[in-house]
């Protein structure tokens, strides 16, 4: 089968107005998501990765830009049309499975809810049947039907979140840090489940996380964001071997690895994220970048393809090609 893009994102912007100016949460981001693949989005808190996910599924209205879903621009259509036509197709799994579930609903009610809201012509029995199917699919035992979220552990709560998202037979799922709140042994269960579901149902994921080992495990492509911008995008295997952007390299070198013999040269970044409010027209990483030149402080680098499929936004990218 030929490569097929499920989503094409072009110059997507989402600004928030704050008393101190425009906050550039997502700034001019363009990339494609291939059908049946997983794109991992990484970056520090505040880099705009969650806003990007929410904007893609219209939980935020984009400031400008296009999001073409199967060729149709879903960013500019009226929200009511989007909801009717695509809400079921594009679903989201949230980070905190406890905060995203109504504490007064039990498991079966929670999973029935999205089905009830989105397919009004289904009868009670059919809805229940669908919800039970979903429970089985995500590995929730039938005896848990009448349990409430507070009685369950984090892993099971996240399974409810996944069941809710899947109950509408979506094609594209935005996973916003779905395993960050979980212990490693539970994290492994959920990651395996997500991969199995992808294989069985041909799902496409946008996987948002700050955990580089998780993202490498689950993704086909990885996009690195910094202060609202996409600064590097390449196949998952490539980023750990041939990282180009200095920020990506710093991010990678900061990860502690569970191996006592591997002492790596660490690139510790000075300072913290600069403000995303009314940023200057220059490379946003320049202030923290050890290789910054005058050019970096004057003009904004564009995303360039340095190797096949490997895009980088850095003036000095040639220097870092290893």
């Amino acid at each position: 089968m030929e490569k097929q893009n499920l989503l094409e994102i072009r110059n997507l912007k989402k600004y928030f107005s704050t008393p101190r100016g425009e906050l550039h949460a997502v700034d001019n981001v363009s990339f494609d998501i291939e059908r049946g693949k997983t794109i991992g989005v990484v970056g520090e808190s505040g880099c705009g990765k969650s806003t990007l996910g929410k904007t893609l599924m219209r939980l935020h209205d984009p400031t400008s830009g296009e999001v073409r879903y199967k060729g149709e621009d879903i960013a500019s259509m009226p929200l009511s049309v989007f909801k009717k036509k695509y809400r079921a197709d594009i679903q989201m799994i949230f980070q905190d499975p406890y905060a995203s579930l109504d504490p007064r609903m039990n498991v079966i009610q929670l999973i029935e809810e999205p089905v009830r809201v989105n397919s009004k012509d289904l009868g009670k029995e059919e809805i229940r049947k669908k919800a039970r199917e979903m429970m089985e699919l995500v590995g929730l035992a039938k005896r848990l039907e009448n349990s409430y979220p507070h009685e369950l552990d984090g892993g099971r709560r996240q399974r409810i979140g996944i069941a809710r998202a899947l109950s509408l037979n979506p094609e594209f799922i935005v996973c916003d840090e779905p395993v960050s709140a979980l212990d490693v042994s539970i994290q492994a269960q959920i990651l395996n489940l997500l991969q199995d579901l992808q294989r069985e149902r041909g799902l496409t994921y946008l996987f948002i996380t700050h955990d580089m080992s998780v993202v490498r495990h689950i993704s086909d492509d990885i996009a690195v964001m910094y202060l609202g911008q996409l600064i590097e995008k390449c196949p998952a295997g490539e980023i750990f071997k041939n990282t180009i952007h200095p920020y990506s390299r710093a991010l990678l070198s900061a990860i502690p690895i569970p191996n006592v013999h591997e002492k790596r040269e660490r690139m510790v970044l000075k300072g913290e994220l600069t403000s995303p409010i009314d940023p200057k027209k220059c490379c946003r990483f320049a202030a923290r970048c050890p290789y910054a030149t005058d050019q970096c402080l004057e003009t904004e680098p564009a995303l360039r393809e340095m190797r096949p499929g490997h895009f980088v936004a850095c003036h000095g990218a040639e220097k870092f090609l290893s």
Binding site: S185, A188, Q189, M212, S213, R216, I218
Partner: peptide
């Protein structure tokens, strides 16, 4: 041992992560 095997690795490709069966 199981704890180690359940962490995704940064430099090795693993098809499936090891899962510790059951609950804490």
């Amino acid at each position: 041992e199981a704890l180690y095997r359940s962490i995704p690795s940064l430099d090795k490709d693993v098809e499936r992560l090891h899962v510790i069966p059951g609950m804490v």
